[in-house]
Write a protein that binds this DNA or RNA. Structure first.
Lengths: 223, 223
DNA sequence: AGGGTTTGTGATAGCCTCTAACTATATTTT
DNA sequence: AAAATATAGTTAGAGGCTATCACAAACCCT
């Protein structure tokens, strides 16, 4: 599955059999890694365990990944890509904040630990690779597109003026600052309910997290 | 510092010198643990390293904590307690949502990893001890008290009805469900902005997180 | 001062990451 | 086809970790 971005176009034989094998092994490594992460969390991910699971002995994996961090970095990249793709697919029928929000929640519930790999506790030393910020820029663009239609009804907050001076992150998107503000708010609020739900903080409380999410989304759409 | 909750009441000599030493060592262990967590994150916390830092060799620490998990559990408990105390102190001048929110943010910024110990990525196997739910109940009560005054102006949402059927978590608090709803929203929204800020997701974006927080708080106070 | 408790020690097992030296196999070049 | 090179895997080992155990030393209390 997946197989995206592989096809080499005209010259079909562009990938040597060795390289083919290599990418295949890397794919299996990641597959096992995701299984492990889903069940035990990213902090417990073990290169060694993956190797043995694949029938090869420990250090062999270092031919494919420079180390644990390199593997995790790759997983983070894939997680970002997967999220962006999901939101992109959700935007296929035109920009729609509600659809976007629900796609985000569905994606998160599909594998909570994958969500936390992106939005969870940061590990102090670590810095995400540059291309992830590119992908998150993609996501932002989708969000801004979806926010643009329903703008301009809320009174301009003082924060909007501040945003006007700091719109670098919008990467040239033509939306007015009220829209940037809305996108930001969408992000923080959705993340707020979602991350608390995924972390289990609503567990003993009795109410249905889905309804809280829906309610928050409603207020986001019609402030 | 801290020293809270120690005093043994009337019979001052209730603590034997041995027990005194014991609690003192445990305190130092936790102190070192907090330093380590602040600088390298909870996932990298090492019993061994703490022991050596304290001049004793590895397994000695197991006299004071049953294991790494027991230590972390204790730290989580203390984090909850510290947060609750901060919010309690902030509530001293009467219930006030804005003061509460700012106290929460100040507490979080003081040691982001401590915040994440409570609200960060959950580790799949782990279940927090019962008494933490008690403390989080304390916090909820403060929140509900602060939300009660400024209620009843927003139209009753469908979710309010659902909450009326699930008010166990409010632990007998007499507030109407619109207030429960407001408290919940306060929690998720504050956590939304705060956790993204602490995790560094606003880092490259240019705007001032404090202003975004203030803006979100404003809209929370006057919806 | 003696006796039981408690604290710390080193040894050990069993994980882990990661490096290094070596072998076997596959690919590429002559 | 044969030789040279590149790559995938192996085992061994250093050094880290958690955690248990048996043992020695210190301590508190009667």
């Amino acid at each position: 599955m997946a197989e995206a971005g592989a096809k080499a176009g005209a010259k079909a034989g562009a990938t040597s059999p060795r390289e083919r094998y290599r990418t295949q092994v890397r794919a299996e490594i990641k597959e096992r890694a995701w299984e492990q992460i889903a069940s035990t969390g990213a902090s417990a991910l073990s290169i060694n365990a993956i190797a043995k699971q694949m029938g090869m002995s420990g250090p062999a994996l270092y031919r494919y990944y420079a180390g644990r961090d390199a593997l995790i970095t790759d997983l983070i990249r894939d997680a970002y890509r997967s999220l962006a793709d999901s939101l992109l697919a959700a935007s296929a029928g035109g920009p729609d904040l509600a659809v976007l929000a629900n796609a985000m929640r569905a994606w998160a519930l599909e594998d909570p630990q994958r969500y936390f790999l992106i939005y969870g506790t940061p590990v102090p030393g670590y810095h995400a690779p540059d291309d992830t910020t590119l992908i998150s820029g993609e996501i932002m663009a989708l969000l801004l597109d979806a926010c643009a239609p329903l703008a301009a009804d809320s009174p301009a907050a003082p924060f909007d003026a501040h945003l006007d001076d700091h719109r670098e992150w919008a990467d040239g998107h033509p939306a007015p600052s009220t829209v940037l503000h809305r996108a930001l708010t969408f992000w923080t609020r959705i993340h707020g309910v979602l991350s608390l739900e995924l972390a289990g903080h609503f567990a003993g409380m009795g109410f249905d997290p889905a309804l809280l999410f829906a309610d928050e989304l409603d207020r986001l759409l019609a402030p």
